[in-house]
Design a binder for these strands. Structure first.
Length: 188
DNA sequence: TACTGGATTCACT
DNA sequence: GTGAATCCAGTAA
């Protein structure tokens, strides 16, 4: 398999997010197919709306991992994008392909559909934490090229936590049981 | 220095 | 459908 070259991540996050579907992500022994993504740029729901020490990586790099810690217990993994601006794509769900026993051990779950069907589930199953933050997408923690049938790519509902604001762009593959059960906004 | 709330998940009703 | 868990980045003072 061929690794995605650094230049592949130079475009805007909203363009990269659907193109990531079907690609193969690997961290060590764990391997899976990306089935759900979400694009963040400078919208109100994004860390990139204000550049801080944490979010600076969204502005300063592309083709790197941006891993952050949230809700006191979860990690989420993004790829940074956009050579000339601010952007990142959150990996929301992955279909497990290799290293399932290791994922089951890390997750405490047997059902393959419960191993990586959510951004924090993916991070836990693949052993991702803040030590991976800022690493380039290559080597031991990388993404391989793979074809994604265009007819299976679905553009979101634009789910977000702040009703009435500009929401992130979410994309997923149809006809897989491995996508997340993302919640709708609490109120319209 | 103190406070607030979160790009989530899970258990429970 | 609802709420708890849990800690850190960001913000205001």
């Amino acid at each position: 398999m061929r690794e995605l070259p650094h230049s592949w991540f130079a475009d805007d996050a909203v363009l990269i997010a659907p193109k990531l579907l079907g690609k193969i992500v690997r961290h060590g022994e764990t391997l899976g197919r990306i089935v759900e993504t979400e694009a963040y740029t400078t919208d109100p729901a994004s860390h990139g709306r204000v550049i801080t020490p944490r979010s600076r990586i969204m502005q300063d790099t592309y083709g790197h991992w941006y891993v952050y810690f949230t809700y006191g217990m979860h990690y989420c993994a993004n790829v940074t994008t956009n050579k000339v601006g601010v952007g990142a794509v959150l990996i929301r769900a992955v279909e497990p392909l290799e290293g399932l026993n290791l994922m089951r051990e890390r997750r405490g779950q047997k059902d393959p559909r419960q191993l990586a069907s959510g951004p924090a589930k993916f991070a836990q199953a693949f052993g991702i934490n803040k030590t991976q933050n800022g690493l380039p997408i290559q080597g031991d923690f990388t993404i391989y090229d793979a074809p994604a049938p265009p007819e299976q790519i679905v553009a979101g509902p634009r789910i977000g936590i702040k009703a009435g604001t500009e929401l992130p762009w979410r994309f997923y593959l149809a006809d897989t049981p491995y996508v997340s059960g993302a919640r709708r906004p609490k109120s319209a």
